[in-house]
Computed example of a mutant assay.
Amino acid sequence: MPVIVNGVELSDADLERELPLHAEASNPMRHAVTALVLRRVLLDEAGRQGLDASDEEGAIGALLASQAPAPQADEQACRRFYQMHPERFMVGELVEADHILFQVTPGVNLDMLKAHADVVLADLLADPSRFAEVAREQSNCPSAAVGGSLGQLGRGDTVPEFERAVFALPSGGILPQVLQTRHGLHIVRVTRRVEGRLLPYEHVAQQIGTALTSMSRDTAWRQYTKLLVERAKIQGIDLDDGEPERVFSGSSA
């Protein structure tokens, strides 16, 4: 069924150009079509506002700048962000960590795997000295060969959910619950910590201001685009409530 936006049908050629930009999405085809819908809606509104739509990128940029302006982050907002997220501005902070990975593979019974990991964790909490031995026997990670050791880890070296867990643990501590990440289920311990130092606010103020302003701009753009979608006449696809916001943030518009 063709997708028609305000009377204009999306072409196969447009879809072929857009699709590679969404190869990493969970549903690349739907993301690509949604991105094209949003682009069409923005271009239609740009034309209605009297902007020159022959330069599509310029027209969309001018429309968003005039209709969805975002304020610059002020000093108070920047200092508040700095105070609320000191971990983001630490340098030199390191942990030495070990883990046991129970990999989630296609067809695995996740409940049974989790139950098994819980039993293994309970045994290790009772006798931490067996951690390396159990890692060699059970871990599905190459680090099993070295007793589960991941060596030294800094901020940004692992996926966020793993990082949050290991940097919150004290030296010698085992996480008291099984950690689930995109890679599977983990039993985690930290063997050593190197405390970092907090960068002075003055060294990161510009970086914070740029990031907060960008976040504010993206929010304003998504909200405005969502409003235009609600007003548009769209046939051939039903967009769920949050879909325009999710796709717009990664689209070419």
Rank of each mutant, 00 (worst) to 15 (best):
V33C: 07
A132R: 14
Q83G: 00
L121G: 01
R80E: 15
V159L: 05
V41H: 06
S26V: 04
R88A: 06
D111E: 13
N6T: 05
Q177A: 12
A25T: 10
L101S: 05
E96T: 11
V41W: 07
F131W: 14
A97P: 03
A211S: 14
R217D: 12
F248G: 08
L179A: 13
Q177L: 10
S139V: 04
T181F: 06
G250H: 09
W221S: 01
M215P: 02
R48W: 04
Q76F: 05
P128L: 15
T181R: 07
E87Q: 14
P69E: 10
R40S: 11
G50T: 01
R231P: 01
P71H: 11
E133N: 01
H22A: 07
C78V: 08
H183C: 00
Q83H: 01
F102M: 04
A145R: 11
H85A: 12
G196F: 06
V159P: 00
A97E: 07
L15M: 00
E161H: 00
E96Q: 14
R217V: 10
A232Q: 02
G156L: 05
H186N: 05
V3D: 10
E16H: 01
H85M: 13
R80V: 04
D127Y: 08
E87V: 04
P20Y: 12
P20T: 12
I174N: 11
E24V: 09
A73L: 07
G92R: 12
I100N: 06
A211T: 06
E9I: 07
M112F: 08
R88F: 09
D52A: 08
E137C: 14
V119Q: 15
P2S: 01
E24C: 03
V8A: 15
S171C: 05
E45L: 08
V204C: 04
L227M: 11
A70C: 07
S143W: 07
R246Q: 09
P244T: 10
L228T: 11
F162Q: 02
L169A: 12
P69V: 06
N140F: 05
G147A: 14
F162C: 00
Q206H: 06
W221Q: 06
A59K: 13
R246P: 00
L121P: 02
A97G: 06
L125S: 01
V204F: 09
V5W: 04
D157I: 03
N109K: 03
P128Y: 15
Q152S: 09
I187E: 13
Q177C: 02
N140C: 07
I208A: 10
G196L: 08
I237D: 13
